[in-house]
Simulated assay, not measured.
Amino acid sequence: MKNPIIISALLFTIITSSCKNSNSSELKEINEQLEILRNENALLKDSISKLKNDDLGDRQLIGIPEGKLQVGKKNRIIFLLHSNKTLPKYEIYTYDGNKENKIGDGNLSKFDYEFIPKSLEDNKIKLKVTFPDKSRPVTMKNETTIPVN
């Protein structure tokens, strides 16, 4: 009866020691990979933090009054934290119904547009910006009404 117990204990010892040796090399390799991943993660965290700080530094505070300002009354002014980032090249159009007229292009997050109203009722500006990406073009339209004096 002692023989099966001794043989079982001996087999268990042999098996566990051989598993320890193979597990030890696998564990060492996993720990090395884990250290590499930790270093890469730290670099990515630093890069993301830098991008966030750079993004805040590239912002402008812009105020847009809602209509004409009135003396002695509460006036609403909308403020935007606008970014001055470079964008992919885009095209600028005026539009009226199906009629479009290309007036320029750009790659900044802002552009100038000059408008000369023809009458007091000529107070709508309709602009369209198109990013002509071959795989998926993106178009944005805007219709702005501005008080004319």
Results as ranks from 00 to 15, higher is better:
Glu29Met: 12
Ile36Gly: 00
Ser17Trp: 09
Gln70Ala: 08
Leu37Asp: 03
Asn41Gln: 10
Asn41Glu: 05
Lys74His: 07
Lys110Phe: 13
Gly97Ser: 01
Glu32Gly: 01
Ile30Trp: 00
Ile116Glu: 13
Glu114Thr: 15
Asn23Pro: 01
Asp112Cys: 03
Glu66Cys: 05
Arg38Thr: 05
Ile78Met: 07
Glu32Met: 09
Asn101Gln: 15
Tyr93Arg: 01
Ile62Ala: 02
Ile6His: 01
Leu69Trp: 03
Asp122Gln: 04
Lys99Pro: 02
Leu51Asn: 08
Lys124Leu: 14
Leu80Val: 10
Ile77Gln: 04
Asn75Gln: 08
Lys85Trp: 02
Arg59Thr: 13
Lys50Gln: 14
Lys134Glu: 15
Ser8Met: 06
Ser49Ala: 15
Gly97Lys: 00
Asn31Ser: 14
Leu87Gln: 11
Asn107Leu: 07
Pro65Gly: 02
Phe131Gly: 04
Asn3Gly: 02
Glu26Cys: 11
Cys19Met: 11
Leu43Asp: 13
Ile103Ala: 11
Asn23Ala: 00
Lys73Met: 10
Gly57Asn: 14
Lys128Ala: 06
Ile7Leu: 08
Glu29Asn: 13
Gly72Trp: 00
Lys73Ala: 04
Glu40Phe: 04
Phe111Gly: 09
Ser83Lys: 11
Thr145Lys: 05
Glu26Lys: 09
Lys102Asn: 10
Arg38Glu: 10
Gln70Tyr: 07
Lys110Cys: 05
Ile64Trp: 01
Gly67Met: 08
Tyr113Met: 12
Ser24Leu: 08
Lys74Asp: 07
Lys99Glu: 11
Thr145Phe: 05
Tyr90Cys: 11
Gly63Lys: 02
Asn53Phe: 12
Arg76Ile: 06
Thr130Asp: 06
Pro88Thr: 11
Met140Ile: 15
Asn142Val: 12
Lys68Pro: 00
Lys99Val: 12
Asn21Lys: 14
Gly57Tyr: 14
Ile146Arg: 05
Pro132Met: 06
Asn107Val: 00
Glu35Cys: 03
Asn123Leu: 09
Gly106Thr: 03
Leu120Asn: 11
Leu44Phe: 05
Thr144Glu: 02
Ser135Gly: 08
Asn41Ala: 11
Asn75Glu: 08
Lys110Trp: 13
Leu51Gln: 09
Ile92Asp: 06
Phe111Ser: 07
Pro65His: 05
Asp133Ser: 13
Lys2Ala: 15
Ile146Val: 15
Leu69Lys: 07
Glu121Ala: 15
Glu91Gly: 07
Asp55Ala: 15
Leu51Ala: 13
Ile92His: 01
Asn21Thr: 09
Ser49Thr: 14
Lys110Pro: 01
Lys128Thr: 00
Asp105Glu: 13
Ser135Asn: 15
Leu34Trp: 00
Lys28Val: 05
Leu69Glu: 04
Gln33Met: 10
Gln60Asn: 12
Met1Ile: 13
Phe79Asp: 12
